[in-house]
């Protein structure tokens, strides 16, 4: 029993230290010795959360968040995990559709935000990059998310984001979702101009805002 406990800690720690090889080695070992894949994922998520914490404390930076995201992805690719990866819906805090808006291909920020949302219990539907407004509308109708998250870094995305909000209004679904914007260039004025509910230029703050938005729904 003692062994297992230390293995858990080791896994979390390896993630926290961003030691990719060690994470994969330990994870494979744990799975072989019978660890429940869902439990393993929780450990990994705990590690990623700690990375997020270190980021908030300014001990880690964006390159570290990218690395944590890569490790998370790698673990999801393990055979045992792939087979099992079906979250029970009662564990889900909320559902969000995210995407980088039309004209923009930058996805580093979006992927970081997505990763942090997942480890915080959200179901994330990721539409990718350069996503036109009607793709957002379609997926809002299809998945009925609580929140729509629009990502972008280019100054031109102010218009693309506005187009998405307007398209949601047109389709009559604007009021069924909360809309949050993410990107460094977004200011309060830009957020008002776009007509979103909230904005941030920090992924972990984004997670907090999303939790609040859920409550206020």
């Amino acid at each position: 029993m003692k062994n297992i406990i230390t293995l858990n800690d080791l896994i979390i720690k390896a993630v926290e230290e961003l030691d990719e090889e060690r994470v994969i080695k330990l994870a494979s070992k744990a799975l072989k010795s019978g660890m429940d894949p869902l439990f393993l994922l929780d450990l990994i998520k705990e590690g990623v959360k700690r990375v997020g914490k270190l980021y908030e404390e300014q001990k880690y930076f964006i390159a570290d968040l990218i690395m944590a995201g890569l490790i998370f992805k790698e673990v999801l690719e393990l055979e045992e995990i792939k087979a099992q990866f079906q979250r029970k819906s009662d564990e889900i805090e909320g559902k969000i559709v995210v995407g980088t808006v039309k004209g923009d291909l930058h996805d580093i920020g979006k992927d970081i935000f997505k990763g942090l949302m997942e480890v915080n219990g959200f179901e994330v539907i990721d539409l990718g990059v350069d996503v036109p407004e009607d793709a957002f509308v379609k997926s809002v109708i299809k998945y009925k998310p609580d929140i729509v998250g629009l990502s972008g870094v280019l100054t031109t995305t102010v218009e693309s984001m506005k187009d998405v909000v307007e398209a949601l209004v047109q389709a009559g679904v604007r009021n069924s979702v909360k809309i949050i914007l993410g990107g460094n260039h977004i200011t309060r004025e830009a957020c008002e101009y776009i007509g979103a509910d909230s904005f941030t230029n920090d992924a972990s703050e984004g997670v907090k805002i999303c939790k609040q938005l859920l409550k206020s729904k």
Partner: peptide, 11 residues
Amino acid sequence: GFKGISRDIRK
């Protein structure tokens, strides 16, 4: 690439 270098820095 930005993702690749982030990994190389650690590995």
